[in-house]
Design a protein around this nucleic acid. Structure first.
Lengths: 184, 184
DNA sequence: GGGTAATTTGAGCAATCACTCAAAAACTGC
DNA sequence: GCAGTTTTTGAGTGATTGCTCAAATTACCC
């Protein structure tokens, strides 16, 4: 998974996979049936891992909106050697395979949609808890949040310097902070 | 350029290029020296074209800030058959080549930096014209704008439906609209 | 139109691609 | 410890990769 995440589907060869898995071609094909099959399994694992991690982060946060803004800021704190200090694998996969491998691209898109639905649920919860106005479309906010995460993770991928990254994360966090209803 | 933009560096083969250029391998190598050389020229052309187009759009806008927000909204209006209805080639290139072809990736990064500097210049102009507060860091705004453009173009790439795209573009435009100084 | 230079041609190069399969090795139940 | 089953092995498959170069063609100048 890490190898595919790092190099992408096209740039990863079976030689690379043999070395990473410490398996010979025959075993790889017996277990995963094809490079595409192996990639799809890796992608699924990535999605599940990331989703669980995100949900755990949100569950641990004192408030829903605070958890969301804190998540945005957390990307800026990632060190270079952090496994997650990269673009999202789902998103890299869509870019890498849209024009050449439609099935892989649409699997990645489906996972992105599932992630976004999880985010929409968070905004619905925040509205129900009176944290944010009840009349704002949660799906719309989820789309905006996902767009922001995509963008900041691309900056991480690109190697943007930490100071600029912190400012960007702060600007994005502020955009959601503004929604907060102050009790009067 | 279009072919490389569409399929990416890795997924484009010399066979594809021969067909697109209507040239035989020998001629291609006489003219461009390598696949990498050809790609770098295509990338340069992409950058110059996009930069000029962006600058022309900004020059034609009645106000600087209005030009910027209008640019964001313009992505939502793109039809599927529009050549630009895709992720940015610079950004796709960074994703595709960062782990495998550092020289190509850094060329793309340099062009992205140049684009961002152009955006920062716009914000400086808007501040000088009294359109936005003078104490906001133009580089910071430029980074945020570029992040937003990256994200919305990725949505375009992904095939997000037009209605959701319009709402996203509007949310992003609003974020910059908020900076506007109302004359009192 | 003849001689020289510049360009194009396309068969073919070694290397690598994803992948196969018969044989060897490692397990399993008795 | 032996037969039967499962798994692993790795040399080798044809196709494709980026790329070369001698030969053919075209362009140019006088």
């Amino acid at each position: 998974m890490t190898l595919f995440w790092e190099k992408g589907y096209h740039a990863t060869s079976l030689k690379d996979l043999e070395a990473a898995l410490k398996m010979k071609p025959g075993s790889i094909y017996a277990a995963f049936s094809s490079k595409e099959g192996l990639f799809l399994q890796a992608l699924k694992r990535y999605y599940e891992t990331f989703r669980d991690q995100f949900q755990a982060e949100m569950a641990a946060a004192p408030t829903t909106l605070g958890g969301i803004t804190e998540h945005l800021r957390s990307y800026a704190r990632m060190s270079e050697d952090d496994r997650n200090a990269q673009a999202c694998m789902l998103f890299k996969t869509v870019v890498d395979t849209r024009a050449t491998d439609p099935e892989i691209a649409s699997a990645a898109r489906d996972y992105l949609t599932a992630m976004r639905e999880g985010m929409a649920a968070l905004f619905r919860k925040a509205a129900a808890d009176g944290e944010i106005p009840a009349d704002i479309d949660p799906d719309r906010l989820a789309r905006l949040l996902q767009a922001n995460i995509t963008a900041i993770r691309f900056e991480l991928h690109q190697g943007t310097d930490p100071a600029a990254l912190t400012r960007l994360a702060e600007d994005m966090a502020q955009e959601f902070e503004r929604l907060r209803l102050r009790p009067n």
